Simulated scan of single mutants.
Amino acid sequence: MIAMGSLSGAAQAQDASVNQGTVEACFNGAPRDAGVPGCVGDAANQCQAQPGGSSTIGIVACLQAETAVWDTLLNREYKATRAQVDQFDTGQPPVSEALLTAQRAWIAFRDAECSLAYERNRGGTIRSVAAASCLMRMTAQRSLELRDMRGGL
C-alpha cells in the first residue's frame, strides 16, 4: 500500500509499544469461530493513553505496534496449520499448497481492503487511522481463523 507506506515511517518514529501479553490474552481467550473479539485493539488503546499516543501519528503507531504482535501470532498459526495439513498429504496436490495459495490471496485481499479504507477517508488524517485499524483487525481475524482451522482438520 503505497499511500500508507509514506506515513508508516513517521508513525514508527513515535516509538510506540504495546503490551504483548494483552494481545496474547485476547488471542488465547477468543472463542473458536466467533469472529473478531472485542479485545482486539485493547493493547493499542492502552498505548494511546501514553504521552504522545493520542496524536494521529501516535494512534497509528500504537495500531501498528499491536498489528506487529498479531502478525507474529499469524505467522506462528500459519506455520502450525501448515505443519498439520502436511500430515494429511496423500501424494495428490498437497493441502499445504492450497493453504499457501489461500494465504497469498488473503494478503492481497487484506492489502486491497485496507487501501480502500485509506482511500475512502481522503481529505483527512483519519485515513491513516482507518487503514492501520483495518490492518490490525484483519490480521487478528486471520490469526484466529488459522488457529481455528486446525481444530477442523
Rank of each mutant, 00 (worst) to 15 (best):
L135T: 10
D33M: 11
C62S: 01
L146S: 08
A10S: 09
T125S: 15
R122C: 08
G123N: 05
A16G: 04
Q48C: 03
A105T: 11
M4F: 15
E113Y: 09
R120V: 15
Q87R: 13
T56L: 08
L63C: 07
L116I: 09
I107W: 14
C62Q: 05
G38Y: 13
A105H: 14
L73R: 03
C134K: 02
K79E: 12
K79I: 10
I59L: 06
V40E: 02
L146N: 12
V129H: 03
T90R: 15
S55Y: 00
T22V: 14
Q20T: 15
A140C: 01
G38S: 12
Q48G: 09
L153A: 11
V60Y: 01
L100I: 08
G21R: 07
P93A: 07
C26F: 00
T56Q: 07
D111W: 05
T101Y: 07
I59D: 06
Q87A: 11
C39N: 00
R122G: 10
R122Y: 12
K79T: 11
G152N: 13
A30W: 02
G152P: 06
N28L: 09
G52R: 04
A34K: 14
L100W: 10
W106T: 07
T101C: 07
S55H: 00
L99N: 04
A105Y: 09
G152F: 15
V85S: 12
C39K: 05
G5D: 13
E119L: 10
M136N: 15
A105E: 14
P51H: 03
G58M: 05
M4S: 14
R110L: 02
E145P: 08
W70I: 00
A130Q: 09
C134E: 04
Q50C: 11
N28D: 14
R127L: 02
G5A: 14
A102Y: 08
A13N: 08
G35C: 07
